[in-house]
Structures are given as C-alpha cells and as structure tokens.
Design a protein around this nucleic acid. Structure first.
Lengths: 343, 343
DNA sequence: GCTTGTCGTGAAATCGTATTCATAATAACT
DNA sequence: AGTTATTATGAATACGATTTCACGACAAGC
C-alpha cells in the first residue's frame, strides 16, 4: 500500500546492517556524544555517506521530545516591520540550528500557534502580537508552554518578555518637537491594545503635558488599523483642517509613510509646512521618497535576546521569567528639517 | 530526570483509562474516520475536553509519515515581493491545514530546505529561489522529494513548476514604450540566473529588436543584486549620462523604486522627463510616492496552484509533473503619464 | 436454524530513533 | 595475578500515536 516510490526509505537499521553494527551504534555515531571506536565510526559514516542516509527527523523528535521548530507569530506581514523582524529572527534561529514556522494572524487569533506548542509540533513560540485580549495564548502561557513575547508585551503575564522602551522613545519625540518650537502638534494614534502603541501615545501625551504644551484634541485622530491607506486618510483629514498641525507624530512608520504621501498628494511641503515623525525605523523610512525622522527599535538585539530566552526556556532551565526592555534611538532625517537635538 | 513541570504530559492512554476504553478507541475517536459507537465517542470526547488533552503531533507525524509542515524558501525578505508571497502562501496553507516554515536564503543556498524534506521534517517545499545552480535542491528533486517551484522555475527539472509569463509581461512593456514613441529606452537588468529576470530582460530585448528599435547598449546597466540602493545607483548612473534615457524599464519593482528615488534626488521629473516601469506590482508600487507603472503577477492564483500541486504530490498521487504558466497584466500608473494602451 | 456479514472494540504490532541495560573485552590498579 | 574500572557494543525498551488483527455480538439471508 505504500506509494510507489517514496524517495529514500532508509532507516538506521539499514545502515546498521550494511555496516555490520547494531542500530544503536549507528545512532551513537549520529549523535556524536557517546563513545564509539574510531574505526567503527568511520565505517558507519562511510556507509551513511555512500547510501546518502538521513535520519528521520520525526522519529528523532518524538524520542527526544524536541522538534527544532520554533513558531513565530506576526500580526501583519504587510507592515514591513514584520518582515524585518522575521528576517532577523530567522537568522538568529538558523544560527541556533532551529527552524522558523511563521503564522501571520492579520490581527485575528493566535490560537493556531498556541495549539501547535501544545501538540509538540513546535518547541516554543515567539510572539510579536500579544495583547491582553489574547486568550488562547494566555492559556498556553499559564500552562507553562515555552512562549516569549517580543515587541508587544503584556504586563503581568508569567513568561519571558522582550521589548524596547516605547515610553522613552515617545518622550524623546515629544522633547524634540517642543524644543524645536513646533506649535500645532498633531498625533495619529491607534487603538491602545498593543503595548507598543499604548505606551507610545500615552507617553507622548503626558510628556507634552509635562512640558506645558498639552495636545490639542482636535489635532489627534485615531486609526483603526495600521496601513499606508489609514495613515494617508488620517493625515489627509488633519491637513484639511482649517488650522492644520505643523508637525505630526505617527505611532508607527507605515502610518507615517501614508501621511507623507498625503502631504505629497496635497502639495504640502515636508518639512517646510509640516514636520513628520514616525516610529520603528523600517528600512523604507530612510528612502529619499520619505526620508523620515523616526524612532529606531534595536531589532537585532531584541531578536537575539528573545531567541536566547526561548532556548533556555525550552531546555527546561526553569529560571524566573525575564523582562528585558532595551533603549531606543531617535533618528533624525529630512522630514523634520535637520533641527538636531543638542547632544 | 524529566524537567520539573512539563506543561501537560497527557497521552491517549490516560484518556483511555479515564474513559474506560482502549487506547485504540481514543485514537479512533480522534481521527474520526473509523466507526465508533456514538455514545462511546461522546464519552471519550467529554474526557478529552475535560482533561484538555491534545494529541502529540510528533508521534502522529511519525506514524503517519506526515508532519503538516510545508517549507517555503524565499531569497530576500527585504524585497517586499516575498513577504507578499509569504502572506498569500500562508493563507493558502492555513486553509489546507498546513503550517509554513520559512527559510530566507539571502541568495545563498537552499540546502537547509532540501535537508529538511529528506529528514521528513517538512512534507514538502515550495521554492521561490530556484536557479539552475541550486545543487542541493536539484538533488532533492531528483530523489523525487515533493518540491514545487514557484515564481522562479528551471526548465527541465522533473518537478511541478508554477510561474507567470515573464516573457509576455516584458513584451507588453516593450510594445507599450515603443507605441508611446519613447526614443531612448533604458534598461536596468540583473544577472540572468533566475528565470524571472532572464525571461524579462531577454524578451524585452528581442521584442524591441523585432520592433525595429533595438536597445542601445549604452543605456543598459546591470545590477548585481536587487535592492533599493542598487536601483538608485544604477538609475543615477543612467541619469547622469550626457544623453540619459527617456524611459527606464527595471527588471523588478524594488529596483524601480530605487530608480524613482534617484530621479527625485536629481530633480528629474517623472513622467515629464523620464518614464519609469517596474515589474511585479508590489503593494508599494501603487503608493503616491511612486505611482509606478508595472507588470502584475497573479500571485494569488500562483500560490493557490502551487499549494494544490504540492498537496497532490505529498499525498502520493504520482501524476506527471505539471508546468503552469499564468498570464500577467500591465498596470499603467502615473510614472508613465497615462498614455494608455488602446483597448 | 445455520451460515455469512457487519459493527464495535481491545490487544498487539508498528513507525525510526535515542537510551538503558547487560556483557565481553581490555586497561588499570593493588 | 587477581580485582576493579572503563570502554565498545548489541539486545531490548520507550516515545505516543495509528493501524492491523482477532473476536464477540448481533443482523441479515437462505
């Protein structure tokens, strides 16, 4: 009943037979840890090479209870930030000999990932999408599944968490625009579900208040999703006000790129008439078409940290749950006319 | 020796005991195919629900010789085309109940993916990166591993292949610029390794020759990688010529976006002084900042087709190898001044 | 009323590896 | 020289499901 030509049904038993050793010895040679007579090892390796044998990963996985697969959950691949994260996470995982299985939730549910851990299909999960509403994820965490939150974090959850300091990032933006003497400060914000968004906009608000320049509510608009289009529309609305803002802070870069295009479409000069500031420093922010001042997250360090934590967690070193928060950096570009902070 | 608190070490045997049935029956209930008395099934399901049992995926995988994991190999996540492909492929795979494990090769080797199939860690691989130089991949294909090529294909390889008609796409561009009376036709091309690139540029060349307007070699420049920066540099070079082109065809959109920015940086008006045409129709091509005329690949259909073929292949229906080639569409936008094709 | 089928179930075999246990051979001590 | 470690290996077991095999109970057909 087996399908015509499975393309290499060799097992370690076949190798054992061909090398005139026991199957156990083949396994020992493969894992390398255990003692095997050098000449025996050579003989076995020769046969393996010759017969082009590859061990069956699933059998190994079942026996060792480790697949080598790590799940990564992102919310929207259409936001270039996430491909950038995937690229970096992929690198880190590959270096650690792990594979990356990707779930793109489009802001719906992370249930699939949670299930996969519970079914031992992945050893652990790196989650960029967590919010306090992530129920299945929360359950997985409570069951002590190996989960690490990165980028978006959720205070109080008993798991490892890696973020960058969104509060500090937003404060540096607030300080910057006030110091530069901007008068009409606009904000394009989002639903405060994700910690990233929430921290950014609330820190921005309160810092401005501290500085004696509280936000004018009429210059604040909230988008219900994060895309070029929503940014475009929101910025269009603000620009069409009788008294439009002279600077806009956007809670992330995609929104800011949309805003930049809205300005372009209306012939509004940036930075002449309008300053524009984003958040994340995605690659495109640096392109001449946008030349966007923004706040950079240390993605590489975050990814490195997250993978390290997850590996510890998977290997069962049941340390306490770490919470890592890394510093950000204000990157000043042409969309704010080079009024650099003193430093 | 087991780590303190594995987070749910339940097996079907535990369920069997609790439901007072044999382990085999639990399995039967789970798989659903086989006959089980309705009341027995209910009892078992109740226990499963109550104890929050999840079957061990690896054990199942080993027994059924199917993991439910599909590998997807992309060459450069930094090219927005690939995240778009991943998003669509991810959708298709999820609908089919499969998981997507992603390898980003950065144009190096696909060896990891090839290994993974051979080790049964993934059921099959969807490859976007194939070139005739992909040795480990070629070996996997020759061993009859379930591999389908998408986007980039390699003539003569015995495996399923799904592409769009790059030749026709490039011809439509050639026709378009000639008909519009463009005089100095520039081309930013790449190394002709990938079928996509090769077909596009060779078809473009030969069609222009056919039309009696062969390419002027001094207006052709070859980039050695595909990024915004290389596009920017190449276009800068062409624009700085004493007699710059009045239209540039770029072999892909990322290059074209870089070229657009080069024009912007030099104050060259698009489409006034320069027409610009890309290839792929990535999402950003439609943004006002670029507004790029380009050729659209039917990604959704391609992905659908690829997943369908791979599933057939995995399930062992050893049909012949299919070669699917879908039509493309010239999308005219502001970078070419709305001189629309007659239709 | 006897044979034949179908259905529901449990016991047992199986998947391919890693690992434990046992053993023979060799090395290392008194 | 006799006892004790140590090393190299094979035989056997375990991992947790799916699947085959066997069997009893009951329905259907003659």
């Amino acid at each position: 009943m087996n399908t015509n030509s499975s393309y290499l049904p060799l097992t370690s038993k076949d190798i054992a037979k061909a090398a005139k050793v026991s199957q156990a010895t083949v396994s020992r040679v493969l894992s390398g840890n255990t003692n095997v007579q050098p000449e025996t090892r050579e003989r076995v390796l020769a046969v393996i090479r010759e017969m082009k044998y590859r061990p069956n990963g699933m059998a190994r996985a079942m026996r060792t209870n480790r697949t080598g697969n790590i799940g990564v959950v992102v919310s929207r691949l259409a936001n270039p930030l996430y491909p950038e994260m995937l690229q970096i996470l992929g690198q880190e995982l590959t270096e650690a000999g792990l594979r990356m299985v990707v779930w793109n939730t489009d802001e719906t549910d992370e249930g699939a990932a949670a299930s996969a851990v519970r079914e031992s299909l992945v050893d652990g999960v790196i989650m960029t999408t967590a919010t306090s509403l992530s129920t299945p994820l929360y359950e997985a965490v409570m069951m002590n599944a190996p989960v690490v939150l990165i980028h978006r974090v959720v205070e109080g959850w008993p798991c490892d968490q890696v973020s960058s300091d969104n509060t500090q990032g937003a404060i540096s933006v607030a300080d910057y625009v006030v110091k530069a003497g901007r008068k009409r400060i606009g904000l394009i914000e989002g639903a405060p579900l994700a910690s990233t968004i929430r921290d950014r906009q609330s820190a921005f608000r309160s810092r401005l208040t501290e500085l004696g320049r509280p936000l004018d509510p009429s210059l604040v608009i909230r988008v219900d999703s994060f895309s070029h289009k929503t940014g475009f529309d929101a910025a269009s609305y603000l620009l069409d006000l009788a008294q439009p803002p002279d600077v806009m802070f956007c809670v992330n870069d995609v929104i800011a790129l949309g805003a930049r295009d809205a300005a372009r479409a209306r012939g509004v000069d940036v930075p002449g008439q309008l300053w524009l500031i984003g958040y994340d420093d995605i690659e495109m922010a640096a392109w001449p078409a946008f030349d966007l001042t923004t706040v950079r997250q240390p993605l590489k360090r975050m990814a490195h940290e997250a993978v390290a934590l997850l590996r510890d967690r998977v290997s069962g070193a049941s340390l306490d749950h770490s919470t890592v928060c890394l510093p950000t950096e204000l990157v000043i570009r042409g969309s704010t006319a080079g009024h650099r902070m003193d430093r």
